[in-house]
Design a protein around this nucleic acid. Structure first.
Lengths: 246, 246
DNA sequence: AAGTGGTCTAGACCACCAT
DNA sequence: TGGTGGTCTAGACCACTTA
């Protein structure tokens, strides 16, 4: 990478968008890793040959998208999927009291398989593509609250094993991030109420057909590329799914 | 209102925040009404005695909050709750095909009453405060999809009648906006699956205890002041609740 | 004290829209 | 053509963190 790299003369849109694209490129190539600080604003402004204002505007968007985090006096950091911070906001389940507690995750199964039609559409892979299927049980203060069935394209997660998933000390998204440099920055969810399917009911201690909340989530990385498909079955008897909108 | 109004010398935080506060004040006082353009950026910059950059920064936040809308070459406008645009994104129900259609609303009941404990907490009014209670049935392409039970503090909506609600030609939020100058800019929702309560089941053509999606929503205006509490019961057999997160 | 991000200025020019 | 928002610059100074 050229330290004095001039962009924008290609003239395809605003300069700060081009800068943004360069920064995303560096993130994808792992030049700056999650948790690390990226170079200071003045340094980056010099590197891309733009003014400090333009550079800041490029970063602004990525900060609101929770990809970068600014700390006054310290620097600008690549967001992590730590338990305690930031992108962890993809977890929405709270107790009826409204307080967010952090869940415990127990791995129930880990298998190799092929993508169903439904899954393949969401992951934008071909039908019968090779996938991993992971089932987790989510418990909050001792009680099982949700069952997550996670589907990952094997191509994006080479060498993933049951042991790796089991021994991780972060969230799943933290695992994608640290081990595969895959950064989940966007999710799309579809929610519906339905009767509990047998397997989930059993794991949650419910009767079949008890009402549960089903959440289908597609998680995407930088260029809207899907990296995970997840179906969650949530027992909302004592918990709610919280959604803040502006 | 002083045309050359200097702010910020009070020195309580960033200048652009103070400007923002002034703009919100003008919005609340109805100086600029929904759908209208606010004065141009240069004009506002002069009025508040700040640079154009600072003025733009003040507006930036309000644009991302969907309170103002910029149109290059035309001006900056106060957002409206029109069917076709903008703040209508508080409606999340889509068909299983993922396409968003606009619902028809039928008023089922309109009564005066007193706030329950639960409602009073959400609306931040005293227990037994005077309220309106409105029940709507939402239909999508002919089929009843949801029942909305809306609670409004009577103090904020003086003179509201069944007829006014029935004859409106906008959404409820459009009504609040045009008739009471109340702008809903933020909602907080809690979702859960449960068995359909008798009344909703009847209106939706379901059996009692069929699984439905229950949504409790508190809608707020500018200073996080709650203005509406709403419980929706949604039949998610053929429809989903869509949620995009970044 | 040195380095970082946060605010603010006073311009310039461009892209778009109405007339 | 004139007015609007959109981009971009090249600085200045402030607030905060770390050493």
């Amino acid at each position: 990478m050229n330290e004095a790299f001039s962009i924008g003369s290609t003239a395809t849109g605003p300069l700060y968008k081009a800068v943004q694209h360069e920064i995303v490129k560096s993130l994808m190539q792992g030049e700056w890793k999650p948790g690390e600080a990226i170079p200071s604003e003045v340094r980056l402004a010099k590197r891309y040959q733009v003014s400090i204002g333009t550079l800041r505007k490029a970063i602004d968007d990525m900060v609101t998208a929770n990809i970068l985090i600014r700390h006054q006096g310290r620097g600008t950091f690549v967001a992590t999927h730590n338990h305690t911070r930031q992108l962890y906001h993809f977890f929405h389940i709270v107790g009826t009291d409204g307080i967010k507690r952090y869940p415990d995750i127990e791995l129930k199964s880990f298998i190799r398989g092929r993508a169903s039609t439904h899954v393949s559409r969401s992951l934008m892979v071909s039908r019968n593509a090779e996938i991993f299927r992971i089932v987790n049980v989510v418990t909050l203060s001792g009680a099982p609250i949700a069952v997550d069935e996670i589907t990952l394209p094997r191509g994006l997660f080479p060498g993933l094993t049951r042991g790796i998933v089991q021994q991780r000390d972060t969230t799943m998204y933290g695992l994608y991030q640290t081990r595969y440099a895959i950064n989940v920055v966007h999710t799309q969810e579809r929610l519906r109420a339905r009767g509990a399917p047998v397997r989930s009911a059993a794991l949650l201690g419910l009767s079949e057909h008890d009402p549960i909340l089903e959440i289908e989530r597609t998680a995407c990385t930088y260029n809207e590329q899907p990296v995970e498909f997840r179906v969650s079955h949530v027992n909302t008897r004592n918990h709610d799914y919280l959604n803040d909108l502006m």
